[in-house]
Design a protein around this nucleic acid. Structure first.
Lengths: 120, 120
DNA sequence: TGGTTGCATACGTAAATGGACATATATCCC
DNA sequence: GGGATATATGTCCATTTACGTATGCAACCA
Protein backbone atom coordinates (compact mmCIF):
# COMPACT_ATOMS: atom_id res chain seq x y z
CA UNK A 1 0.00 0.00 0.00
CA UNK A 2 1.28 3.40 -0.82
CA UNK A 3 1.95 6.22 1.54
CA UNK A 4 0.66 9.53 0.38
CA UNK A 5 3.02 12.31 1.34
CA UNK A 6 0.21 14.80 1.08
CA UNK A 7 -3.43 14.92 0.21
CA UNK A 8 -6.40 17.08 1.00
CA UNK A 9 -9.72 16.01 2.37
CA UNK A 10 -10.22 12.39 1.59
CA UNK A 11 -12.67 10.73 3.91
CA UNK A 12 -12.91 13.46 6.49
CA UNK A 13 -13.67 16.64 4.66
CA UNK A 14 -13.51 19.31 7.24
CA UNK A 15 -11.01 20.42 9.81
CA UNK A 16 -13.47 20.91 12.62
CA UNK A 17 -14.63 17.37 12.25
CA UNK A 18 -11.04 16.26 12.58
CA UNK A 19 -10.53 18.32 15.69
CA UNK A 20 -13.80 17.17 17.20
CA UNK A 21 -12.21 13.91 18.25
CA UNK A 22 -10.31 14.28 21.53
CA UNK A 23 -7.92 11.49 20.62
CA UNK A 24 -6.84 13.37 17.53
CA UNK A 25 -6.30 16.55 19.50
CA UNK A 26 -4.23 14.61 21.97
CA UNK A 27 -2.09 13.38 19.11
CA UNK A 28 -1.60 16.90 17.84
CA UNK A 29 -0.75 18.08 21.33
CA UNK A 30 1.86 15.37 21.52
CA UNK A 31 3.31 16.55 18.22
CA UNK A 32 3.67 20.16 19.22
CA UNK A 33 7.33 19.75 20.17
CA UNK A 34 8.27 18.16 16.87
CA UNK A 35 8.05 14.93 14.99
CA UNK A 36 7.36 11.73 16.87
CA UNK A 37 7.28 8.06 16.09
CA UNK A 38 4.12 6.05 16.50
CA UNK A 39 5.26 4.31 19.66
CA UNK A 40 6.30 7.64 21.04
CA UNK A 41 2.77 8.84 20.50
CA UNK A 42 1.32 5.69 21.99
CA UNK A 43 3.23 6.37 25.18
CA UNK A 44 2.38 10.03 25.29
CA UNK A 45 -1.31 9.67 24.58
CA UNK A 46 -2.06 6.41 26.38
CA UNK A 47 -3.94 5.16 23.39
CA UNK A 48 -3.61 1.72 21.84
CA UNK A 49 -1.21 1.42 18.96
CA UNK A 50 -3.91 0.55 16.42
CA UNK A 51 -5.92 3.57 17.50
CA UNK A 52 -2.94 5.83 17.16
CA UNK A 53 -2.19 4.50 13.70
CA UNK A 54 -5.79 4.80 12.68
CA UNK A 55 -6.16 8.39 13.79
CA UNK A 56 -2.79 9.33 12.38
CA UNK A 57 -3.88 8.03 9.03
CA UNK A 58 -6.99 10.17 9.16
CA UNK A 59 -4.90 13.18 10.06
CA UNK A 60 -2.43 12.36 7.34
CA UNK A 61 -4.83 11.93 4.45
CA UNK A 62 -6.46 15.14 5.56
CA UNK A 63 -3.19 16.97 5.40
CA UNK A 64 -2.92 17.80 9.08
CA UNK A 65 0.19 15.74 9.73
CA UNK A 66 2.95 14.55 7.46
CA UNK A 67 4.86 11.31 7.55
CA UNK A 68 8.50 10.57 6.99
CA UNK A 69 9.88 7.06 7.24
CA UNK A 70 13.22 6.24 8.74
CA UNK A 71 13.79 2.53 8.68
CA UNK A 72 10.92 0.93 10.47
CA UNK A 73 10.15 4.11 12.31
CA UNK A 74 7.39 6.32 10.98
CA UNK A 75 7.87 9.88 12.09
CA UNK A 76 4.86 12.14 12.09
CA UNK A 77 4.82 15.89 12.30
CA UNK A 78 2.30 18.69 12.12
CA UNK A 79 1.43 20.48 8.92
CA UNK A 80 -0.10 23.73 10.03
CA UNK A 81 -1.78 24.76 6.85
CA UNK A 82 -4.91 22.70 7.34
CA UNK A 83 -5.39 23.93 10.86
CA UNK A 84 -5.30 27.43 9.58
CA UNK A 85 -8.70 26.98 7.99
CA UNK A 86 -10.21 26.46 11.40
CA UNK A 87 -8.38 29.42 12.82
CA UNK A 88 -9.52 31.61 9.96
CA UNK A 89 -13.14 30.63 10.45
CA UNK A 90 -12.91 31.38 14.14
CA UNK A 91 -11.36 34.75 13.48
CA UNK A 92 -14.70 35.96 12.20
CA UNK A 93 -16.06 35.48 15.70
CA UNK A 94 -13.17 36.94 17.56
CA UNK A 95 -14.97 40.23 18.02
CA UNK A 96 -17.66 38.46 19.97
CA UNK A 97 -15.33 37.94 22.84
CA UNK A 98 -12.96 40.83 22.24
CA UNK A 99 -15.45 43.64 21.94
CA UNK A 100 -17.82 42.41 24.59
CA UNK A 101 -20.62 41.88 22.12
CA UNK A 102 -21.93 39.20 24.35
CA UNK A 103 -25.63 39.95 24.71
CA UNK A 104 -26.03 37.66 27.68
CA UNK A 105 -24.98 40.26 30.16
CA UNK A 106 -27.87 42.44 29.19
CA UNK A 107 -30.24 39.54 29.25
CA UNK A 108 -29.12 38.59 32.69
CA UNK A 109 -29.66 42.12 33.90
CA UNK A 110 -33.14 42.75 32.65
CA UNK A 111 -34.55 39.28 32.16
CA UNK A 112 -37.56 38.01 34.10
CA UNK A 113 -35.40 35.91 36.39
CA UNK A 114 -31.90 37.20 36.44
CA UNK A 115 -29.44 34.62 37.52
CA UNK A 116 -26.37 35.88 39.26
CA UNK A 117 -24.64 32.58 38.79
CA UNK A 118 -21.25 33.07 37.30
CA UNK A 119 -18.55 30.73 36.20
CA UNK A 120 -17.06 28.89 39.18
CA UNK B 1 -40.38 23.39 30.07
CA UNK B 2 -38.04 26.04 31.30
CA UNK B 3 -35.59 27.96 29.23
CA UNK B 4 -32.16 28.20 30.68
CA UNK B 5 -30.61 31.55 30.03
CA UNK B 6 -27.15 30.13 30.37
CA UNK B 7 -25.42 26.87 31.02
CA UNK B 8 -22.09 25.24 30.35
CA UNK B 9 -21.43 21.97 28.63
CA UNK B 10 -24.42 19.77 29.09
CA UNK B 11 -24.55 17.00 26.55
CA UNK B 12 -21.89 18.25 24.21
CA UNK B 13 -18.82 18.87 26.27
CA UNK B 14 -16.39 20.34 23.85
CA UNK B 15 -16.41 23.23 21.48
CA UNK B 16 -14.79 21.45 18.60
CA UNK B 17 -17.47 18.82 18.67
CA UNK B 18 -20.04 21.58 18.40
CA UNK B 19 -18.27 23.15 15.48
CA UNK B 20 -17.82 19.83 13.77
CA UNK B 21 -21.38 19.92 12.53
CA UNK B 22 -21.71 22.05 9.39
CA UNK B 23 -25.31 22.91 10.19
CA UNK B 24 -24.25 24.48 13.47
CA UNK B 25 -21.53 26.48 11.78
CA UNK B 26 -24.08 27.67 9.25
CA UNK B 27 -26.25 28.85 12.10
CA UNK B 28 -23.38 30.72 13.65
CA UNK B 29 -22.53 32.26 10.31
CA UNK B 30 -26.12 33.42 10.03
CA UNK B 31 -25.84 34.98 13.48
CA UNK B 32 -22.73 36.99 12.77
CA UNK B 33 -24.70 40.13 11.96
CA UNK B 34 -26.68 40.05 15.17
CA UNK B 35 -29.55 38.30 16.80
CA UNK B 36 -32.04 36.42 14.69
CA UNK B 37 -35.35 34.69 15.16
CA UNK B 38 -35.74 31.01 14.49
CA UNK B 39 -37.65 31.50 11.26
CA UNK B 40 -35.04 33.96 10.17
CA UNK B 41 -32.43 31.29 10.63
CA UNK B 42 -34.55 28.72 8.85
CA UNK B 43 -34.65 30.98 5.80
CA UNK B 44 -30.98 31.83 5.93
CA UNK B 45 -29.69 28.33 6.41
CA UNK B 46 -32.18 26.35 4.36
CA UNK B 47 -32.61 23.90 7.16
CA UNK B 48 -35.89 22.56 8.46
CA UNK B 49 -37.37 24.37 11.42
CA UNK B 50 -37.04 21.39 13.77
CA UNK B 51 -33.41 21.00 12.82
CA UNK B 52 -32.73 24.64 13.47
CA UNK B 53 -34.42 24.47 16.84
CA UNK B 54 -32.58 21.33 17.74
CA UNK B 55 -29.16 22.64 16.86
CA UNK B 56 -29.88 25.96 18.50
CA UNK B 57 -30.71 24.15 21.67
CA UNK B 58 -27.42 22.31 21.55
CA UNK B 59 -25.59 25.57 20.98
CA UNK B 60 -27.54 27.22 23.73
CA UNK B 61 -27.00 24.67 26.47
CA UNK B 62 -23.35 24.70 25.53
CA UNK B 63 -23.16 28.42 25.97
CA UNK B 64 -22.36 29.30 22.38
CA UNK B 65 -25.55 31.22 21.73
CA UNK B 66 -27.95 32.99 24.03
CA UNK B 67 -31.70 33.28 23.80
CA UNK B 68 -33.98 36.19 24.45
CA UNK B 69 -37.73 35.89 24.06
CA UNK B 70 -39.87 38.65 22.68
CA UNK B 71 -43.46 37.52 22.52
CA UNK B 72 -43.55 34.36 20.55
CA UNK B 73 -40.30 35.21 18.85
CA UNK B 74 -37.16 33.62 20.14
CA UNK B 75 -34.13 35.70 19.32
CA UNK B 76 -30.76 34.00 19.33
CA UNK B 77 -27.37 35.62 19.38
CA UNK B 78 -23.77 34.56 19.65
CA UNK B 79 -21.91 34.32 22.91
CA UNK B 80 -18.28 34.47 21.99
CA UNK B 81 -16.74 33.17 25.15
CA UNK B 82 -17.18 29.49 24.39
CA UNK B 83 -15.73 29.85 20.94
CA UNK B 84 -12.68 31.38 22.48
CA UNK B 85 -11.67 28.02 23.88
CA UNK B 86 -11.32 26.68 20.38
CA UNK B 87 -9.40 29.72 19.27
CA UNK B 88 -7.07 29.44 22.23
CA UNK B 89 -6.34 25.81 21.49
CA UNK B 90 -5.58 26.61 17.88
CA UNK B 91 -3.28 29.44 18.86
CA UNK B 92 -0.79 26.87 20.09
CA UNK B 93 -0.45 25.70 16.50
CA UNK B 94 -0.33 29.08 14.88
CA UNK B 95 3.43 28.92 14.58
CA UNK B 96 3.12 25.88 12.37
CA UNK B 97 1.73 27.97 9.59
CA UNK B 98 3.20 31.33 10.55
CA UNK B 99 6.83 30.36 10.93
CA UNK B 100 6.89 27.89 8.11
CA UNK B 101 7.53 25.02 10.44
CA UNK B 102 5.84 22.79 8.00
CA UNK B 103 8.32 19.97 7.62
CA UNK B 104 6.79 18.67 4.43
CA UNK B 105 8.50 21.23 2.29
CA UNK B 106 11.89 20.09 3.46
CA UNK B 107 11.00 16.46 3.10
CA UNK B 108 9.82 16.91 -0.44
CA UNK B 109 12.90 18.89 -1.37
CA UNK B 110 15.78 17.05 0.21
CA UNK B 111 14.49 13.76 1.45
CA UNK B 112 15.10 12.11 4.81
CA UNK B 113 17.21 13.94 7.34
CA UNK B 114 19.09 12.68 10.36
CA UNK B 115 16.64 12.46 13.14
CA UNK B 116 16.65 14.77 16.10
CA UNK B 117 15.87 12.46 18.96
CA UNK B 118 14.84 14.22 22.09
CA UNK B 119 13.21 11.71 24.40
CA UNK B 120 14.27 8.16 25.38
C1' DT C 1 -63.09 31.74 21.68
C1' DG C 2 -61.05 29.57 18.02
C1' DG C 3 -57.71 29.77 14.51
C1' DT C 4 -53.08 30.87 13.17
C1' DT C 5 -48.31 31.59 13.76
C1' DG C 6 -43.65 30.64 15.95
C1' DC C 7 -41.11 27.49 18.05
C1' DA C 8 -39.85 23.16 20.72
C1' DT C 9 -39.84 18.29 21.32
C1' DA C 10 -40.72 13.06 20.76
C1' DC C 11 -39.89 9.26 18.04
C1' DG C 12 -38.06 6.27 14.65
C1' DT C 13 -34.26 5.44 11.55
C1' DA C 14 -30.10 5.35 9.07
C1' DA C 15 -25.38 6.51 8.75
C1' DA C 16 -20.87 7.53 10.64
C1' DT C 17 -17.16 6.22 13.46
C1' DG C 18 -14.06 5.13 17.40
C1' DG C 19 -12.22 1.27 19.94
C1' DA C 20 -10.77 -3.56 20.85
C1' DC C 21 -8.79 -7.41 19.02
C1' DA C 22 -6.51 -10.09 15.72
C1' DT C 23 -3.51 -10.17 12.03
C1' DA C 24 -0.61 -8.61 8.13
C1' DT C 25 3.62 -6.33 6.60
C1' DA C 26 8.12 -4.41 6.76
C1' DT C 27 12.53 -3.65 8.88
C1' DC C 28 16.29 -4.71 11.92
C1' DC C 29 19.44 -7.89 14.27
C1' DC C 30 21.75 -12.34 15.35
C1' DG D 1 17.01 -17.50 7.73
C1' DG D 2 14.51 -16.58 11.86
C1' DG D 3 12.97 -13.95 15.55
C1' DA D 4 11.95 -9.46 17.44
C1' DT D 5 10.38 -4.89 16.74
C1' DA D 6 7.52 -1.11 14.55
C1' DT D 7 3.59 -0.02 12.27
C1' DA D 8 -0.62 -0.69 9.45
C1' DT D 9 -4.99 -2.69 8.49
C1' DG D 10 -9.25 -5.58 8.70
C1' DT D 11 -13.33 -6.94 11.22
C1' DC D 12 -16.81 -6.63 14.47
C1' DC D 13 -19.45 -4.00 17.56
C1' DA D 14 -21.44 -0.30 20.25
C1' DT D 15 -22.40 4.32 20.45
C1' DT D 16 -23.49 8.66 18.80
C1' DT D 17 -26.15 11.68 16.26
C1' DA D 18 -28.46 14.19 12.54
C1' DC D 19 -32.62 14.32 10.05
C1' DG D 20 -37.65 13.90 8.77
C1' DT D 21 -42.21 13.62 10.32
C1' DA D 22 -45.60 14.38 13.45
C1' DT D 23 -47.07 16.66 17.36
C1' DG D 24 -47.22 19.73 21.50
C1' DC D 25 -47.51 24.29 23.30
C1' DA D 26 -47.59 29.17 23.89
C1' DA D 27 -48.49 33.73 22.06
C1' DC D 28 -51.07 36.57 19.00
C1' DC D 29 -55.31 38.09 16.73
C1' DA D 30 -60.08 38.57 14.62
Amino acid sequence: MDIYPFRHTLSVPDVFQLLAEPSRRRLLDALRDGERSVNDLVDRTHMSQPSVSKQLRILRVSGVVSLRSEGRHHLYSIRGRSLREASDWLSYYERFWREGLDRMDEVLQRGPRPRTRRKP
